[in-house]
Amino acid sequence: MTSTGEAVQFWVLAVIAVGGALGMLLMRKAVHSALCLAATMIALAICYLAQGAVFLGVVQIVVYTGAIMMLFLFVVMLVGVTSEDSLKEQLKGQRVAAVLCGLGFGVLLIAGIAHAKLGHFPGLAEANAEGNVQGLARLIFTKYVWAFEVTGALLITAAVGAMVLTHREHVTAPSTQRELAAQRIRENKQVPPLPAPGVYARHNAVDIAGLLPDGTIAEDSVMNTLRERGQMRDVSQDMLRRMAELENSTAEWLGRPSSERPALPSQPRPELEPVPNHQKTTDDAAKRQEEGE
């Protein structure tokens, strides 16, 4: 049996770990999931420490929460920090089957563990006699030295693999600004500079498309990366509604008849709505290219 202190610690940590795991499972945004997982991992690291695995506890914090989770966050940022899973399940019966399988599996595991008999419980006193790190080192560099060396090879291979997978070779030298300007003139497509994002006096964020005179958005005003991620926000409807409200209040103040007042948009839309349709923009780009030719 363990000490009461460890029991209290375990229950606290268990709640945190399970809560984090469930949070990771249920959060719609990837970045939230990553943070939840980090919490779970820290809780587990403390569990390791509590169980006498000092080295592993530290490594858990350094490698997992420090390196791996940061790598996850980095990629999440690369892919789009606000991107979410849609709630609609596309595979028929997948969710139900997954839940059933999970439940069944959990029940089986717990039943199996409960079935096991724990007789003598020695603790790590003997193994950790000369210190946990020393004990591990002795094993790693004697009994498991071959596996350890192979692990080194594995890490190098993984590093090289990651580079190979993400590296893109430039086939030609990147164009200079001068060449790009010359090309714009030659193609006669977008001779002036691209429109700036933001709506005058209301929004100036880079993810909000500028509006064209007819009230629609100028997609070119938002940078490609944000468009690709679907993180461009469209405020055109909102602006039109506000314009209409302004007109209305002016008309009311001037006492004009209601027939001359502009109609309000029937269904007011949320103030800031993302434009998830990145494909539309790419399609439009293709169309524009075709028209240009």
């Binding site: 695995a53 592993l56 390196a67 692990t151 693999g161």
Partner: peptide, 26 residues
Amino acid sequence: SRLHDNLDGQILAFFTMVVAAAEVVV
């Protein structure tokens, strides 16, 4: 590992972490 007073379990967990790191990178 703790139940058996034996560090082999921790060694295995250590290797799992290394492999997990490699796996995550790729």
